[in-house]
Amino acid sequence: MLLGAFHLKYSMLVPKTTNNDKRSDELVRLEFDVNVSLERDKPYVNVKTTINNQVENHRIQVLFDLGKQVKTNFADIQLGEMERDNEFELTEVSVRDQWHECYYPVFNQHKYSGLRDESENGFIVLNKGLPQYEIYQEDTTKLAITLLSCVGAMGNVGLKYRPGRRSGSADLTPDSQMKGVYTLEYAFMPIQANSEYRLEAEKYVNPILGAASPEFSNEGNLPDNLTLISSEDGLLLSCLKPSEGGDGFVLRTLNPSTQPIKYADIKVNRFVFGSVETVNLAEEKVTDKRVTSSKLNNPDGSALAQFSGVIELVDVNRNQLISLKLK
């Protein structure tokens, strides 16, 4: 349910293009259309920005200010979260000493990036398909999410951060100037020490879709709702897919946090799944003493919809992926 929203439309005059020496004197108009909304039971503010871009060789970013200086940033990457040093002094050293590839704090991200202080209060910015962010350090630390990055060639010579050498191929890439109308989606979420922001990021990028299904049995009464798989111990259920051999389903679980998980339970519906085995990414059976199961079998056929199967995991390391085959 929508609680509130506002619409912002504005334009700004910017240099038409940029070369290795300076921005052009000719100015063109860059148009923005921004919709901001807040929904009930959602811990973040949605933003949808539409840009009519007619400018070349430039980058458009949206900045979020923490309000204080911090030394690190963090972001969702492959298989978990990474904390990175901002290292602004290294940029100055690399430019001064004319490194072949100067350092500057531009990083990759998947679902989110963010800033937080020593008390773990801060924010994350969720995104849908925006892979780059940058850190600015002035009086305060700012997170800059790249909305558009527009270039006309694969590489060039004499660039500021790669002086005296060609950066990649010199082939022209006119389509990479990204002229036209683009719509970008992202969201701002305040966080504190106990915030479940990783789960919220997963739901934001990959929302759960509901579908009606046939009854499992015509014997007795089924409950009003039926859960197949659940976990509430910090594990992220990353994937559920048919196995390559067609003999079950592969469930991939992930510890996305920066700390190990000592104990975790995965609850499954024992009418649907009767056995479990640990597999590798090639879906080959492996032995893993950290994974045990109980109450998965249902020999007497009673309580068909009962949510009672338990898979127990111990000592799941940070950013670790465990694959299970359910049959």
Score class of each variant (00 low, 15 high):
residue 286 V to N: 04
residue 137 Q to P: 08
residue 277 E to K: 10
residue 296 L to K: 00
residue 310 V to P: 06
residue 85 D to P: 07
residue 157 V to Y: 14
residue 11 S to N: 12
residue 235 L to G: 02
residue 118 E to W: 09
residue 255 N to Q: 07
residue 191 I to K: 02
residue 123 F to E: 04
residue 101 E to M: 04
residue 162 R to C: 10
residue 209 L to H: 10
residue 284 E to A: 09
residue 166 R to K: 06
residue 313 L to I: 10
residue 14 V to N: 08
residue 106 V to I: 05
residue 321 L to W: 08
residue 184 L to K: 04
residue 101 E to G: 14
residue 125 V to Q: 05
residue 154 M to K: 02
residue 176 S to N: 15
residue 308 S to A: 15
residue 11 S to V: 13
residue 134 E to V: 03
residue 82 M to E: 11
residue 319 N to H: 07
residue 103 Y to S: 00
residue 326 L to A: 07
residue 224 D to R: 00
residue 181 V to P: 04
residue 154 M to I: 13
residue 105 P to T: 06
residue 307 F to A: 11
residue 17 T to M: 06
residue 29 R to L: 15
residue 148 L to W: 10
residue 44 Y to I: 07
residue 151 V to G: 00
residue 33 D to N: 10
residue 309 G to Q: 03
residue 237 L to D: 05
residue 192 Q to V: 09
residue 206 N to E: 05
residue 211 A to Q: 10
residue 31 E to W: 09
residue 268 V to C: 06
residue 116 R to W: 02
residue 238 S to N: 02
residue 291 V to Q: 05
residue 267 K to F: 15
residue 267 K to R: 14
residue 239 C to T: 06
residue 249 F to E: 00
residue 259 Q to L: 08
residue 65 D to I: 02
residue 19 N to G: 08
residue 134 E to Y: 02
residue 79 L to E: 11
residue 256 P to V: 03
residue 86 N to E: 04
residue 263 Y to G: 01
residue 55 V to W: 04
residue 311 I to R: 01
residue 325 K to L: 15
residue 234 G to F: 14
residue 28 V to Y: 02
residue 165 R to E: 00
residue 264 A to L: 08
residue 86 N to Y: 08
residue 273 F to T: 00
residue 112 Y to L: 03
residue 291 V to R: 01
residue 171 D to Q: 08
residue 205 V to L: 01
residue 320 Q to E: 15
residue 24 S to G: 07
residue 187 A to I: 11
residue 41 D to E: 11
residue 140 T to L: 01
residue 124 I to G: 01
residue 102 C to Q: 02
residue 158 G to Y: 07
residue 19 N to D: 10
residue 121 N to Y: 13
residue 308 S to H: 04
residue 204 Y to E: 09
residue 212 A to V: 05
residue 227 T to V: 11
residue 25 D to K: 14
residue 160 K to T: 14
residue 128 K to M: 11
residue 40 R to E: 15
residue 316 V to E: 03
residue 307 F to E: 06
residue 169 S to C: 09
residue 64 F to K: 06
residue 310 V to F: 12
residue 229 I to D: 02
residue 3 L to D: 00
residue 2 L to H: 04
residue 100 H to D: 12
residue 35 N to I: 11
residue 244 E to Q: 09
residue 65 D to V: 06
residue 66 L to H: 05
residue 104 Y to K: 04
residue 319 N to K: 10
residue 305 A to H: 10
residue 63 L to S: 09
residue 289 K to S: 15
residue 88 F to S: 10
residue 71 K to H: 07
residue 154 M to V: 15
residue 113 S to G: 14
residue 116 R to C: 14
residue 214 P to Q: 04
residue 137 Q to I: 11
residue 90 L to T: 10
residue 321 L to C: 08
residue 150 C to Q: 08
residue 54 Q to D: 04
residue 82 M to Y: 03
residue 285 K to T: 14
residue 300 D to N: 10
residue 23 R to N: 14
residue 282 A to L: 11
residue 158 G to N: 11
residue 314 V to Q: 13
residue 93 V to S: 13
residue 31 E to R: 06
residue 152 G to D: 12
residue 215 E to M: 02
residue 262 K to C: 13
residue 142 K to T: 08
residue 185 E to Q: 11
residue 46 N to I: 08
residue 294 S to P: 00
residue 149 S to V: 03
residue 182 Y to T: 07
residue 222 L to G: 02
residue 271 F to D: 03
residue 282 A to H: 04
residue 204 Y to S: 08
residue 301 G to Q: 05
residue 262 K to Y: 14
residue 70 V to N: 09
residue 258 T to A: 05
residue 51 I to D: 02
residue 221 N to C: 03
residue 224 D to M: 01
residue 70 V to C: 13
residue 324 L to V: 06
residue 247 D to R: 02
